[in-house]
């Protein structure tokens, strides 16, 4: 493999990681509540912008700044739970989905009022350094994105599939009433769900911001790509969301280089349409019986 292809592949993996994290957050919300979270893109932007201000506030102490972002995103999750999810819980899922669209618009406008419309550049906690492997130069930030994503995926897997909290979480997702009858505190798990969703999106914001400029709309595109990733990987499948994210990253980066950077988004959505036509259940599909 030539150095150039390798270089592109690493950048594709980093972009794919960001889509994968957002797709994972959408997937977790869908698995546990049946709600498709259309505010994902705006939550990503919120993470990036809160990160920008928090880093400035702590004078470039990234660790406390990032903890502030996690706290902030958790609070958005709790506000979403109390103001949107719990009041609408007895309505049809579609009502809540439309609620998430409204939340997205609300968050975007609050951000516009707070941070203004101008794009901003954001520093990486890894600085602007790069490591050279022969002819391939990889920025530290890209390695950091890949590393953090891997840790997040492992952490989510352990939480959902290897802990008793995860079992309660999945039981509640499959049958909230039966979960209640088994003494599971369903409302607390819904709170955990929306906190996880917001924190994951926020982390995706922190990861992407140093690679591209940030303005109040920059998450929108990431949110849409995450949906494309889920369609390709298969709705209802966590591994599908991750693989889909990486495929979308690869198409985007390789498409921009070999075809045209003007067409990189079109290529992603063309593949998504192709999947919807030919294999609507995506690569991994959904175990329909889970939703009995």
């Amino acid at each position: 493999m030539s150095a150039q292809v390798l270089q592109l592949a690493i950048n594709a993996l980093a972009a794919g990681c960001i889509y994968a994290v957002v797709a994972l957050s959408v997937e977790i919300a869908y698995e546990s509540t049946g709600v498709v979270n259309f505010a994902a893109g705006q939550l990503v932007t919120a993470g990036a912008l809160i990160g920008l201000s928090a880093v400035a506030y702590t004078k470039f102490n990234f660790l406390p700044a990032y903890l502030l972002v996690i706290v902030g995103m958790s609070m958005i999750g709790i506000v979403f739970l109390i103001c949107v999810y719990l009041p609408l819980r007895r309505q049809s899922v579609l009502t809540i989905v439309i609620g998430t669209v409204g939340v997205g618009i609300f968050i975007q406008n609050v951000m516009l009022l707070t941070w203004g419309p101008l794009p901003k550049s954001v520093r990486s906690p890894m600085g602007s350094g790069a490591i050279k492997f022969g002819d391939v130069s990889v920025s530290l930030h890209v390695l950091y994105v890949i590393g953090v994503t891997a840790l997040l995926i492992i952490g989510m897997y352990l939480l959902l599939y290897r802990s008793s909290l995860g079992r309660q979480f999945r039981a509640t997702a499959q049958d909230p009433e039966a979960a209640t009858l088994m003494g599971i505190r369903v409302k607390q798990l819904y709170a955990l769900n929306w906190i996880l969703v917001c924190v994951l999106s926020g982390i995706a914001g922190l990861l992407f911001a140093p690679m591209w400029l940030v303005d109040v709309t920059s998450g929108d595109n990431i949110g849409l790509k995450a949906f494309a990733a889920i369609m390709i990987g298969g709705f209802g499948s966590v591994p599908g969301a991750i693989l889909g994210g990486i495929i979308v990253g690869a198409i985007e980066i390789f498409g921009a280089f070999y075809v045209s950077s003007a067409f990189k988004d079109a290529l992603v959505f063309a593949l998504m349409f192709l999947f919807l036509l030919v294999r609507p259940q995506g690569i991994f599909g959904e175990r329909a019986a889970d939703r009995a």
């Binding site: 008793s164 079992r167 309660q168 999945r170 039981a171 499959q174 049958d175 039966a178 979960a179 088994m182 003494g183 599971i184 175990r287 019986a289 889970d290 939703r291 009995a292």
Partner: peptide, 13 residues
């Protein structure tokens, strides 16, 4: 719980 194994169904309770 359809998507939990038998053991997980028992553990979750």
């Amino acid at each position: 719980f359809p998507g939990l194994t038998v053991l997980e169904n028992l553990e979750v309770a």
